[in-house]
Design a protein around this nucleic acid. Structure first.
Lengths: 116, 116
DNA sequence: CTGTTACATGTGTCTTTTACATGTAGGTAG
DNA sequence: CTACCTACATGTAAAAGACACATGTAACAG
């Protein structure tokens, strides 16, 4: 984005969709497309690329943070339902801690910005 | 990122060093190396690569967000001192607004995380 | 006057992350 | 049939970040 003329400001948190995913999965097992639609509600507007979402889900599964199974019986295209593992839960907790740190850093910045 | 399993968590704000730079320059004109040392104090953690820092500074200047001049007279290596322009000041304000948004999104997330 | 350290500004390049585009396929409504 | 929605997936390019190194000034030690 450091391209002449393009100093657009978004101030997004890096890979924020990851903890959002984990949080949604903590609430209940869900399939990819549903996560895609629910994510903006958690991240508060981050538009998620579905290509990347599926890649992340597969990666999480490879490392044992989520498990998945094909959902049978239901109408419509087959759905792969993901569920959080204990390790995934731990990763979510890690994220929560890191995000608290981020909040503090932003606060510090804003204090300094306003303070004068 | 942190290799093992590649799920390391940092929760950094994208390009946080940019508003930090602008904030420091709002306080007073400064040269690159000094910014490099002052940055962690503002961002509260960001280890900035100096090569990238100088590139960002040049980019900012190309777009008229900062101006620079070679500092003469002083002992030691020549220093290029940067100063914030009106447009740069406006970009900082934009960042501040965006960061407040980030703060709120993180709060929403953490509320949902803790809320149960 | 040689070597070392600190200051100061940069370039080159690789990897990771994100964005955008496209492909496959089942199901539903007109 | 065809258009559209759901659902999952791959390919690839651009952006952002990380890592390594090059250049030069000056102070100070030995």
């Amino acid at each position: 984005m450091v391209r002449p003329g393009h100093w657009g400001v978004r101030a997004r948190v890096e890979r924020f969709s990851e903890p959002a995913l984990l949080l949604l999965l903590r609430e209940r097992p869900t399939h990819g497309y549903e996560l895609l639609e629910a994510l903006p509600g958690v991240t508060g507007e981050a538009r998620v690329d579905m290509g990347n979402l599926y890649r992340v889900l597969r990666g999480l599964e490879e490392d044992g943070l989520v498990t998945s199974r094909w959902e049978a019986g239901e109408p419509g295209p087959a759905k792969r339902t993901y569920e959080l593992t204990v390790e995934g839960r731990r990763l979510l907790d890690e994220w929560a801690g890191a995000l608290q740190g981020s909040r503090e850093r932003i606060d510090t910045f804003l204090d300094r910005y306003e303070g004068r």
